[in-house]
Design a protein around this nucleic acid. Structure first.
Lengths: 227, 227
DNA sequence: CTGAATTAGAGAACTTTTTCTCGATAATTA
DNA sequence: TAATTATCGAGAAAAAGTTCTCTAATTCAG
């Protein structure tokens, strides 16, 4: 028998599907606010302008079971996704880099309801150490590894200049970090066991710049959706 | 005969390859600063901890021709990539949203050498209109479509709250934008002809949160690289 | 109570991306 | 001058991801 109402075994989850779940999640929340109580994958696909089978496969992957002809109970589905992604169990995170990007990240107060809580900020700049940004005290970088170890922080955010990214990553690894979210435009190397997510704007910029020059300015008429 | 030293026909360029070029580009620049003059794909792969054939395919895709047993002239390769991506021909861009994220984006002075120049900033908030951020005047949002049309701006950046993202995108489309770089955590719908790039942190957060809970904390020993 | 319509689920087909393999070429060494 | 080796270039194979198609279950209408 197949697993039914249990999302215990996370066999093989496509990265692409994982990254689409937040899109569904937000759309579902809007529907909920609109007072809807049942939803089918087809509804969701229509609302977002996406392929219905793609949405179905993604939802199916989370392990939730729907009813033919009806779909899913909206509230159940929303909670299921929260639980599937771990968004209802915030994980501690440390941020390194209290510059403009770091400050912007500290301002995102919705992170906590999406699985992450930034519990400490570190910087190497004496000017910044001791100051408070969005209610969090900036600490000296040298305290980072100990803090990670002591507080069992699983996630580290890097928001420092490219040149400093690798050494910050190394410090995090020393402290025993499990995952790194790297916002610096730099390729950092970490042990294979570390989960690494790069948020490098220049990757997107390369794609955009190339397409602007090479994708012909079509006289498109059809309305469609995103990537 | 196959096209040799001409990157004129942009047949089918894999998105994934496009997004890796900046990684190579930066590594090559570092090598150049280190005084190296020749480089092979194998060198590059080694420096980055990536698969050599992957690197070879990506470089090959750009259309540059190398010499067996030697590789490429470093400077030629760097310039070739700049030219291939259009990074040596900055494209005008408008930014909407002068909040903390928008300000951080305006602070990235390296964008201009990477194919993009933010020429104007718009916001709907009266408090912000008229102020200068990183030497650029914040203009009222209602002037956006005209500005795009008049100045032939091909690229628009959205850095507003999620709720406002769709209407800003609509204004850009009205103005005749060709590509949109969306930093708002929202799914915007645009005509198919528009190139859309989403930079949604919650996509990454979903992936990270899920993996932290489901990828076992391996006792890995091997050193490896990123995604 | 019966038939029509809608939807989840599952597998097949297709596409895209990555990895593997091998021949050709140029530099290096004997 | 010939053998050797490192590297590019290109095609084939494999893997990953997306789309298509069909079946079974359930609701709704008559």
């Amino acid at each position: 028998m197949k697993s039914l109402a249990s999302n215990d075994r996370p066999r093989e989850i496509p990265e692409a599907s994982l990254r689409r779940l937040p899109i569904y999640y937000r759309s579902l929340q809007m529907m909920m606010r609109a007072g809807i109580s049942q939803v089918s994958c087809a509804d969701l696909a229509r609302a977002l302008g996406l392929d219905p089978t793609l949405v179905r496969k993604d939802i199916e992957m989370t392990g939730i079971v729907g009813k033919p002809r009806v779909g899913y109970t909206l509230q159940d589905l929303v909670q299921w996704i929260e639980n599937f992604l771990g968004w209802n169990r915030p994980k501690k995170a440390v941020l390194v880099g209290a510059g403009s990007l770091g400050s912007a990240l500290l301002g995102y107060d919705r992170f906590r309801s999406h699985g992450m809580e930034i519990v400490a900020v570190f910087d190497i700049d004496r000017e910044k150490i001791g100051k408070r940004i969005h209610d969090r005290l900036v600490q000296p970088l040298m305290l980072l590894p100990d803090f990670i170890t002591r507080e069992h922080v699983p996630l580290g955010l890097i928001a420092v200049p490219a040149a400093a990214a690798q050494s910050v990553a190394d410090l995090m690894v020393v402290g025993g970090i499990r995952a790194i979210w790297n916002f610096a435009p730099a390729h950092v190397r970490v042990p294979a066991r570390i989960i690494l997510q790069n948020e490098d704007l220049y990757h997107s910029l390369a794609s955009l710049s190339f397409k602007l020059e090479n994708v012909p300015p079509e006289n498109g008429i059809i309305y469609a959706e995103d990537n």
